[in-house]
Design a protein around this nucleic acid. Structure first.
Lengths: 236, 236
DNA sequence: CTTTGTTGTTTGTTATAACAAGCATGATAT
DNA sequence: ATATCATGCTTGTTATAACAAACAACAAAG
C-alpha cells in the first residue's frame, strides 16, 4: 500500500472510450435530449464527443442491438419514434415481466428491501410536494428497480431495464404532466405493502395496474398519426 | 423496366460484411459449434472469415449487446457457459413470454396459422420416425416460432428469439437425446388444438408445460458444478 | 413542364497501423 | 527453491484514410 492517502486521487475511468460514449448517448436518450425520429450520424456524434468515428460506431451498434436505437435506411441510427402500437407492445411485455418480478420479490421478501422501498416512497412524496419532478422521476425509477431487484433474477432485471430504455425518448417529456395529474390512486404504497406481506398475487396485480395506468395516459397523448408528442404547454 | 427478364439475374447480397459475419457466428452458436466458455478472439475469427477485424468486431459487439455472447475479462467475447442457475432464469422468463404469446395467438387464431402448424406437426412426426434429429430440431424451432408469430406482437417475438439464442450453445448437443426419450407426452398437438379452438388459457398452459418439461430434462444433464455438458455417448 | 442523367456531397463500411493493457515465459537474485 | 522483475507476445482499442452507396441539386433532352 502506498504511503500517501488514496483519497488524494480521483479514480481514473479506465473504461473503453466506446463504452463511455454509449453511456452518454443512453442518458441523453433517457433525458429526452434527442427528438424521436431524428437520425444520428456517426460523424456528428464523433465531433460532439471529440473522438473518432470508431468508438461512436461501437456505441451506436451496441444500442441498436439492444433495441434502444433503431436501424434506419442505410443502417443509420435513428431515435425510435414510439407510436401507440409500439407502446401497446411494450406494455404487454412489461406487464408480464414486471408482474412476475414483483411476485418473485414478494416471495423473497426481506426487511432490507422493504425498508429501502419505504424510504424511497417517503422521498417521492416529498419531491412531489415540492414539485421537483426531475428528481422525482429518478427516485421513481429507482423504486421500481428496487422491487425488480428483489426478485433476484438478473435476467429478468436486465430485460425489464431494456424495456424502460425503449420508452426513454418519450417518457422524459410526457411523464411530468402525468405525475402532477396523479390524484390518490397511487399503487406504489400497495406494492410495498404486498411485498412486505409476502403476497405475490397482490404485488403482481398492483404493478400491472400501475403500468397499465401510466401507459393509458401516454396513449392519450398521441396525435392522429399515433405518435406520442410532447405536450405543447411544457417549455423546452 | 429493362427489356431483359429480371429472372436472369440473381439478387446480389449487398448486406454489410459485419452483418453476414454476425449471421454466421449466430448460426454456429445455434449449431453448437463453439464450446461453452470458449473465448473468441477477433483476429482468429477475422482469419476464419477472411476479413479484417473491423467487421468481426462489429458483429461480436452486436451479439454481446444482445446477450448472445458474454463479455469476459479484457472485453473478450466468450461463449456463454449456461449453468443451471442461468437456465432456471431463462425458463422463468420464457414461460412468461412464450405463454403470453401462445395465449395471444389463440385469441387471434386464423386458418392460415393453424394449417401451417398442422403441416409442421406432421413433418415433425415423420422426421422423428426417420430419426432425422437435426432437421427435426429446425422444424421444431419453426413450429414454436410460428405460434409466437401468431401473437402478432413483434416485440414479444424478438425477445423470445433472444432467449432461444441464449440457450443455443447447449441446446444443440443435449436436445437430440431428449427428443428420443420423448414418449407420448407431446404438448405440441394440444397447443395446436387450443389455438384452433381459440382457447388461450389452454394454449398458454401447454406451452408452459412444454418449456418446463424440456428445461427439467436439461437440468438433469448438469455436472456437479451445475454446468450443462454434452452427453458422452454422442459422437463429435 | 416532366423526365432523365450527371455531379457533388453526405454517410456508413472496411482495412490498416499504431497503441496499451494483460499475460505468460524465463532469467536473475536472495 | 522461491520470489521478483524484465521481456515479448497476444489481444482489444482507437484513429485515419480510402471506399461505396444513397441522396440532393441541377442541367439537359423530350
Amino acid at each position: 500500500m502506498a504511503a500517501v492517502s488514496a483519497k488524494a486521487f480521483k479514480k481514473i475511468d479506465s473504461a473503453p472510450l466506446w463504452d463511455r460514449v454509449r453511456s452518454q448517448i443512453k442518458h441523453a436518450l433517457l433525458a429526452g435530449r434527442f427528438e424521436p425520429g431524428e437520425t444520428l450520424t456517426l460523424r456528428s456524434l464523433a465531433e460532439m464527443f471529440g473522438t473518432s468515428v470508431t468508438p461512436v460506431r461501437d456505441a451506436v451498434n451496441h444500442l441498436v442491438a439492444q433495441g434502444v436505437l433503431e436501424a434506419g435506411p442505410r443502417n443509420a441510427a435513428v431515435v425510435p419514434d414510439v407510436a401507440t402500437g409500439t407502446l401497446r407492445e411494450i406494455m404487454c411485455v412489461r406487464t408480464e415481466l414486471e408482474g412476475r418480478a414483483a411476485r418473485e420479490a414478494a416471495y423473497r421478501s426481506n426487511l432490507e428491501t422493504v425498508s429501502s422501498l419505504r424510504l424511497q416512497l417517503e422521498t417521492m412524496r416529498d419531491l412531489i410536494h415540492k414539485r421537483r419532478l426531475d428528481s422525482y422521476l429518478d427516485v421513481h425509477r429507482n423504486f421500481h428497480f428496487t422491487v425488480y431487484s428483489g426478485a433476484e433474477i438478473p435476467l429478468l432485471y436486465e430485460m425489464i431495464e431494456n424495456l424502460w430504455l425503449r420508452t426513454g425518448p418519450i417518457l422524459a417529456y410526457v411523464i411530468p404532466d402525468y405525475v402532477i395529474s396523479l390524484k390518490g390512486t397511487d399503487h406504489h404504497e400497495k406494492i410495498v405493502a404486498a411485498i412486505e406481506a409476502g403476497d405475490g398475487t397482490t404485488a403482481e396485480a398492483e404493478v400491472v395496474a400501475d403500468i397499465e395506468e401510466a401507459t393509458n395516459y401516454l396513449l392519450t397523448c398521441s396525435d392522429d398519426l399515433g405518435r406520442i408528442r410532447r405536450p405543447l404547454k411544457t417549455p423546452l
